[in-house]
Computed example of a mutant assay.
Amino acid sequence: MRTIPDSLDPRAVAGIDARLALVEREHGVRIPWAIESGSRAWGFPSPDSDYDCRFLYVRASDDYLSLWPARDVIETPLDRVFDVNGWDLAKAVKLIAKGNAAALEWLRSPIVYAGDPAFRDRLLGLADEIVARELIERHYLHVGRQQLGSGTSLKRFFYALRPAAALRWLADHPESALPPMDLPTLIAESSVGPDIADAVAELIAAKAVTRELGDAARPAALVRFTEQELDRAGRRDAVLDGPERGARWDEVRARADAWFLDELRAGSRTTR
């Protein structure tokens, strides 16, 4: 599977392809999923946005039996154009079980460099079984709060606005725990009024011609929207228990273990 929009520089895409191939060769891993994250996939790139490729990788089954396991992150050199790194599948599964939405977003990115859709669907299926919706809300609440207070740049405000929009989407879709990844879809599929939708569209258009670190006026309506959604989620979060308590957490860990072992066995069969 490969989904590359025309807006991406073909030279940058070729550079990412080369880095992914090098990771597989040098580290002896298999990469079943590689996507774009960051502002390009979130729907609000700037003229100087870098390329934030993220990938999931799987080691040979025996590697997971070592007394001295390898790091669960693989990073490639960071520069002005490329930010390419990935997580071991074991790390991703553990974080998903705890309600970390990052890996789930990677599985729903609109920009895919290379991927096995069957693998993606299996991991999303696991998430549907084990992820506690309240923990996804907590993830976006914490990210939104952190970004809202981290500076005055337009970039930072977008990084708070998107979690706030995800929280509104979750409130409007009680049947789902997995919101879309990109900001325009979050807004289009939620109950925000036309004033908020228009303000978001205008701000995205402004960011498209503003350097990443540039400042711009934050529309008062969007500031209020962001603060209100974070406040509402904060009130709900205050009454939640921790993610690792009780019988349900034991069930989640057991199901995640079983899924991971099945995935390793299936990968071993396909690589023989």
Rank of each mutant, 00 (worst) to 15 (best):
T152A: 14
G43E: 03
G86T: 11
T185S: 15
T226R: 05
W106S: 02
A102V: 15
S191H: 10
G267E: 13
W87D: 08
D88N: 14
R272T: 12
V239G: 06
R232K: 12
V131C: 04
D83M: 12
Y57N: 06
M181E: 00
A171N: 09
R30S: 13
R19Q: 15
W249P: 00
T152C: 00
T271Y: 02
P32Q: 11
A21P: 07
A216K: 09
R80H: 14
L148D: 04
P45G: 10
G267M: 05
A114M: 04
K91D: 06
L135A: 05
L213K: 14
V23M: 13
Y57T: 02
A160M: 09
W259I: 03
D116I: 03
A102T: 15
D241L: 12
L22V: 07
A266H: 12
L78E: 11
P77R: 13
S7I: 07
A177L: 11
P47M: 10
D237E: 10
I31M: 05
V223H: 04
A12Y: 00
A233N: 10
D62Y: 12
H173W: 07
R224K: 14
L183K: 08
A41S: 07
G144V: 12
W33M: 06
F260A: 07
W169R: 05
L230A: 09
V93L: 15
I16D: 01
D237W: 05
W33C: 05
L67G: 13
D241Q: 09
V13Y: 00
R269N: 06
R248Y: 00
W33I: 05
F55E: 00
D6G: 01
A258M: 03
T152I: 08
S46L: 09
W33L: 10
V112M: 03
G15W: 02
D63G: 11
